[in-house]
Computed example of a mutant assay.
Amino acid sequence: MGRTIVVTGASSGVGLAAAKQFAAMGDDVVLVGRDPQRLANAVAEVRDAGNGREPGRYRTDFDSFAEVRALADHLLTNLPRIDVLANNAGGMVEHHRKTTDGYEATIQGNHLSPFLLTSLLRERLRDARVVNTASRAHMQGKPDPDRLAGDPAKYSTWQAYGASKAANILFASEAARRWPDITSVSFHPGVVRSNFGVGRVTRFFYKYAPGLVTPEKAGALLVWLSTAPKDELVQGGYYVDRDSPATPAPHARDDSLAAKLWEASAEATG
Rank of each mutant, 00 (worst) to 15 (best):
A23S: 04
A23Y: 01
A24N: 01
A24T: 05
A24G: 11
G26E: 05
D27N: 00
D28A: 14
V29N: 13
V30W: 15
V30S: 10
L31I: 10
V32Y: 11
V32A: 11
V32S: 11
G33D: 09
G33N: 07
G33M: 09
R34T: 06
D35F: 11
D35V: 10
D35N: 15
D35C: 11
P36I: 04
Q37I: 09
L39A: 06
L39G: 03
L39R: 06
A40N: 15
A40I: 07
A42E: 01
A42T: 00
A42M: 03
A44N: 05
E45F: 05
V46N: 10
R47W: 07
R47E: 15
R47D: 10
D48V: 13
D48P: 01
D48T: 14
G50E: 04
N51G: 09
N51A: 13
N51H: 13
N51I: 06
G52E: 02
G52Y: 02
G52Q: 05
G52A: 06
R53I: 07
R53G: 07
P55L: 10
P55N: 12
G56R: 03
G56D: 04
G56P: 02
R57M: 08
R57Q: 13
Y58P: 01
Y58F: 15
Y58D: 00
R59V: 15
D61G: 12
D61P: 13
D61I: 13
F62L: 11
F62D: 12
F62H: 08
D63N: 14
S64F: 11
F65E: 02
A66H: 07
A66M: 03
A66E: 14
E67C: 00
E67H: 05
E67S: 06
V68I: 01
V68T: 05
V68E: 01
A70E: 15
A70D: 14
A70W: 03
L71N: 02
A72H: 08
D73G: 04
D73P: 00
H74V: 04
L76S: 12
L76R: 11
L79Y: 03
L79V: 00
R81S: 11
R81G: 07
D83M: 01
V84P: 02
N87V: 07
N88L: 10
N88C: 11
G90A: 00
G90M: 00
G91M: 08
G91T: 11
M92C: 09
M92A: 12
M92I: 14
E94M: 14
E94P: 03
E94F: 10
H95R: 14
H95L: 09
H96L: 05
H96Y: 15
H96M: 04
H96T: 04
H96I: 04
R97P: 09
R97D: 12
R97T: 15
T99P: 03
T99Q: 01
T100M: 13
T100L: 15
D101R: 12
D101I: 13
G102T: 03
Y103P: 09
Y103K: 12
E104A: 05
E104S: 04
A105F: 07
A105L: 10
T106D: 09
T106N: 08
I107S: 02
I107E: 02
I107L: 06
Q108F: 03
Q108W: 03
G109R: 06
G109I: 09
N110L: 02
L112P: 06
L112G: 06
L112D: 05
